Amino acid sequence: MRIGDVARRAGVSTRALRYYEEQGLLTSERSHGGQRTYPESAVERVRLIQQFFAAGLPSRTIAQLLPCVDAGHGSAEALELLATERDRITAAMAGLAAARDALDRIIDIAGHPTPEHCPALREPAWAPDAASAPVSA
């Protein structure tokens, strides 16, 4: 099967397929004319790779997991790797939640400014006093 056929059937770009090959996630053979050819099973493999990406896994982790997929069974190392990735994603989510909460506070302050948060609402420190006021004749 040619690269365009795999891309169309799997719902990805040909560029994505080339990237998967560069990362060692997918293999192809070359025709006499140098064109990539794939087995029928490539469509299913690309869909699996897409599921891994959708789960937030980087290509280096996917490359480590695919031998387990090819062997048809998981390993303790694969499960540990998945748990580590889940922890990484959970930490990233906590960081995003903290950023969202900080932005919510800024939005609230912008919508309801107070002298505490907005220097323009404070009494100017340079306010003239009676001693420095100009004298009229």
Rank of each mutant, 00 (worst) to 15 (best):
M1H: 07
R2L: 11
R2T: 08
I3M: 02
V6W: 03
V6P: 04
A7R: 00
R9K: 15
R9Y: 06
A10F: 07
G11L: 15
T14P: 05
R15D: 15
Y19N: 13
Y19Q: 13
Y19D: 07
E21A: 10
E22A: 05
E22T: 02
Q23G: 05
S28T: 02
S28M: 05
S28D: 13
E29R: 14
H32S: 12
H32E: 15
H32F: 10
G33A: 15
G34D: 13
G34T: 10
Y38A: 11
P39H: 06
S41N: 07
S41H: 07
A42N: 01
A42R: 02
V43L: 13
V43Q: 04
E44Y: 12
E44I: 05
R45D: 05
V46D: 03
V46R: 02
L48P: 08
F52T: 00
F53H: 14
F53D: 00
F53G: 00
A54Y: 08
A55P: 01
G56C: 11
P58C: 10
S59I: 01
S59E: 03
R60F: 03
A63V: 04
A63P: 01
Q64F: 01
L65T: 05
L65E: 12
L66P: 06
P67W: 09
P67F: 03
V69T: 15
V69K: 12
D70N: 08
D70R: 15
A71G: 05
A71T: 06
A71I: 08
G74F: 14
E77N: 12
A78V: 10
A78R: 12
E80Y: 04
E80F: 06
L81V: 01
L82C: 10
L82E: 06
A83T: 06
A83C: 02
A83V: 00
R86A: 08
R86G: 02
R88D: 00
I89F: 01
I89A: 12
T90Q: 14
A91P: 00
M93S: 14
M93F: 00
A94E: 15
L96P: 01
L96E: 07
A97V: 06
A97N: 13
A98V: 09
D101C: 01
A102E: 13
A102H: 07
D104I: 03
R105F: 06
I106P: 00
A110E: 12
H112P: 02
H112G: 04
P113M: 09
P113K: 08
T114A: 05
E116Q: 12
H117A: 10
H117I: 01
H117G: 00
H117W: 12
P119Y: 08
A120H: 10
L121F: 05
R122M: 06
R122H: 00
R122Y: 02
P124R: 11
W126E: 09
A127Y: 00
P128T: 09
D129S: 02
A130S: 14
A130M: 12
A131W: 13
A131R: 05
S132W: 08
S132C: 13
A133N: 12
A133W: 15
S136W: 09
S136K: 14
S136Y: 09
A137C: 11
